[in-house]
Amino acid sequence: MNLTTPPPVEHLDPGYAADVKHDLVRKARKPKRARWTPFLAWVPIVAATAAIAISTTTVVTLSRSGGGGSTDPAGPPGIVQVPPEASKVEETDLGPADEAWARAAAEKCLVPSTDAYGTKSHWNSPADAKTAKIRSARWVKNVVHPDERRQLLQSFSIVDEDVVFQCLDGVVLWHGITSELDDGVSAQEPVAGAWSWGSEDQGPVTVANSDYIFRATDDVERVQLRIRGTEAASPWYSTRVSGNLGYIAGVLPGAQADAGRLEVDLRAFDKAGKQVWSKTFG
């Protein structure tokens, strides 16, 4: 087995490829406001829509007429535009955690796990936690599941291997070499990271959530995340940057994490409280 040689891969099925290409071009020709939905998902969506359309029409109509904040109530659903200063700020940082908690969580974080593809998460062992250097450890609110307990957000270094781990409640968010911490960040782009979103049924309500795992320059003290949907926007969820690393999550009840129906705003502030960065994803 030679790991530097690409494992052979079967051809993309020509029939499937032709269908996808045709579908892509056809949709691209449509007016820009058309909403994108993978065509394989259309059948269940159409079926589900047909089944629930009658029962929900009244509810939807009532909620729209209530002034839900959509910028274009007469046209197709659009994502609400809310000025940044019009959203409240919700602090998620709950203060520092002591070292005993941090070291126990580091040990849990280093237990090899398997991701959704069946790949092991990393190669260090829990024993490395004993000698790890704790870079930061703070309690944060669990905004996605507010009924559950607070979460421990931490970063630590495996000294011998010069590897930094960032973990949330014992789950690896990011890991890399110490010297990579400032890769991709600069005075012009002081924050760099990866975002994701999802939706979850919580009782009768679908709740959209989003998170951002990031690195930041020394100057950045706070990073905030806000979700905007077709009906409403969340507050700014705010976190403190600790050891050049951070993580922030937010939720928007009554929203679905789909392209064209949700956007995620991010912004960063320096120690003087001046906004130094912003970005929108989705």
Binding site: K120, H122, H175
Partner: peptide, 15 residues
């Protein structure tokens, strides 16, 4: 085959 190759590669850090 790919999963076997990935299993061997999985001992590397993700980055």
């Amino acid at each position: 085959h790919i999963q076997a190759v990935r299993a061997a590669l999985s001992a590397l850090p993700a980055h």
